[in-house]
Design a protein around this nucleic acid. Structure first.
Lengths: 343, 343
DNA sequence: TTCTCTACTGTGAACGCTCACAGAAGCATG
DNA sequence: CATGCTTCTGTGAGCGTTCACAGTAGAGAA
């Protein structure tokens, strides 16, 4: 359609070529490129035609050199390497964020900070201004990298509530407490009363809030909180399996269990099956996340849906706003109960 | 340690500041930055000290503007969005490539080309020279995007053998044929003779080669090839389940099955279990990839290990060489049989 | 007319770096 | 002493863009 660069690599057209072609000045072309304010319709038209004809694409390096912006943003994952991709939530988040950024024509730089060395390298890279901002994802929200970046004045937004309540850092999170409440209410509505819970890590707000929701609903319903029905995990499949095992040992009469992530719920399913408990007949099982793990299991998991697409969009929106000079913001998004087979 | 950018964002030091600090010229600093040839030890030392003292980090945009290189490379995934992350192999590959690049201090730009729109946008972005080269990953190797980029003269390396035998495109792949041979030989050594196979997509060399290995070994062993023991899938879990079902219907006496990917093998496991076949007692099951799916299943999968870490390193090495002007290259890496529980 | 205001356009001057080139210094060779 | 060679260093130009500024033209008001 346009003059694409077939064959060898020739010198690409510059803004100057476009200007000459359109019979205007560089400045006018630049203005068209950047929103088109204060440009006559005639010039606008001529420039666009010239751009199409020459196949011009802006040289981002030249632009960045002068604007000081890189027009790219980083996606930072701070997890030990083994766990890095076990959790399907990371994948979904990565995919959604990439797409959300793509719609703004902003490339995403993937940054994996598993080891101490990598963290140093990446911190240096980011503080050097090679990206305009950072999307931070990590399951344990007390992240020193994020804090360091924040102090260096780098715009960033975290996925999930951060630990320190005082720190003014942007974040986007699902409503953990409310989601947990919905799930436990659902289990109660099924007639279950001996409801166990495998929590997330309790050094993270997400883990704490989901446990809080659990306790609240039980208390409101007049069901006594039994500490033997509460164990904690770290969102890994293995910890879900171990957690369910411990619960079965401590409270053999358990008739339902709320597991704070689908991946852990998968593990719990294994443990329950091994113990000869039928799901959902003997023990109703509720997960959290609605990740791919939920539909892959048999039985498919009843779970709380985290709106990852909306979370990603909001993260990008908040980050872009912050890069544009706005203040840090917190966004909490509603969850939704998804009924499948396990409860 | 050094003067890090604490607090607000001040103007970062330039090469000029370093030169002044070190008492040398810009040129000398630049030479130190780029390998340090033709620089006296004294100057070398002074410059390094000045860099440490000022906290200088090169401005990549200014450098790129003049060199024409972006010093970044793209990771292109051309798959429909749903499948994008279902396959754990993609995750591993992405992780390994990111790390391989990180060791060269090269950032990775993630590019997801699921829809036609995205493909156009990304092709445009790449041909505009915003990345120096591209790592291409896709399960169906007949990829129009890759071909288009290749014709535009963009350095790229594919993961897996490409379809057209004539096209001079770099690639790195595991030895599919040999891996399949190892697995089938192993199944034979277990005393199995009615060995089924669920192949990968037969419009891709990987799928074809694994099937070829299967047939070769059986023929060499004097076992007759039975077409009822051969069905094909598309590497998805669902297709593995359907494939195993079909095999059981067509050849109920099947005593082993070689499934061309671990994800499909997971599906096959479900089908076998549903049909009441014990694995490995009644039917021995062999997978391919040694992805996370292999250890997550019960029983854990005996499989053929694809050396993803080496594949990634080679992809990066070949790509960098090609960017440096060398000719396209093909690398085939050996696989390894990993015995677990399923066979 | 003259002035002001708005809408638009063109022109240097950067941005921070690398590269080519010229030149200096040191040393051996003719 | 001149010449060449090698090793090292500094300087000016320029990469392609944006930005600030100056300037023009036309419309409307005084």
């Amino acid at each position: 359609m346009t003059m694409s660069n077939t064959g060898g690599r020739r010198k690409p057209p510059t803004i100057h070529d476009v200007a000459r072609e359109a019979g205007v000045s560089r400045g006018t072309v630049s203005r068209v490129l950047n929103g088109g304010h204060y440009v006559s319709p005639t010039a606008q038209e001529a420039v666009n035609a010239a751009i199409r004809k020459t196949g011009y694409v802006v040289n981002r390096h030249a632009r960045s050199l002068i604007t000081g912006r890189s027009d790219s943003i980083g996606f930072l994952l701070t997890e030990p390497q083994e766990k890095l991709f076990e959790d399907p939530n990371f994948n979904v988040l990565l995919r959604c964020c990439t797409q959300a950024l793509a719609s703004h024509d902003i490339p995403l730089l993937l940054m994996l900070a598993g080891t101490e060395d990598e963290r140093r390298r990446i911190t240096r890279y980011i503080t050097a201004g090679h990206v305009d901002g950072v999307l931070v994802v990590s399951s344990h929200s007390a992240d020193p990298v994020a804090e360091e970046l924040r102090q260096a004045g780098v715009p960033l937004v975290q996925c999930g509530k951060p630990m320190g309540r005082g720190s003014k850092v942007s974040y986007v999170a699902a409503d953990d407490r409310d989601g947990a409440r919905d799930m436990v209410r659902h289990l109660l509505s099924l007639g279950r009363r001996r409801i166990g819970v495998v929590t997330g890590p309790l050094d993270s707000p997400g883990g704490v809030d989901r446990l809080a929701g659990y306790k609240e609903v039980l208390t409101e319903a007049g069901v006594e909180i039994d500490e033997r029905l509460i164990v904690s995990g770290d969102y890994s499949r293995a910890s879900g399996e171990a957690g369910a095992e411990r619960l079965l040992a401590q409270a053999p009469d358990m008739d339902a269990v709320f597991v704070a992530s689908d991946l852990m719920a998968q593990g719990a399913l294994t443990a329950l099956r091994r113990a000869g408990r039928r799901v959902p007949e003997d023990v109703a099982l509720g997960g959290f996340d609605d990740s791919t793990a939920a539909t892959e299991s048999t039985p498919a998991l009843t779970t709380i849906r985290q709106p990852y697409d909306r979370i990603s969009n909001e993260m990008v929106r908040v980050l872009l706003a912050q890069i544009g000079g706005e203040d840090p913001a917190a966004v909490i998004l509603p969850t939704e109960l998804v009924r499948r087979e396990s409860a």
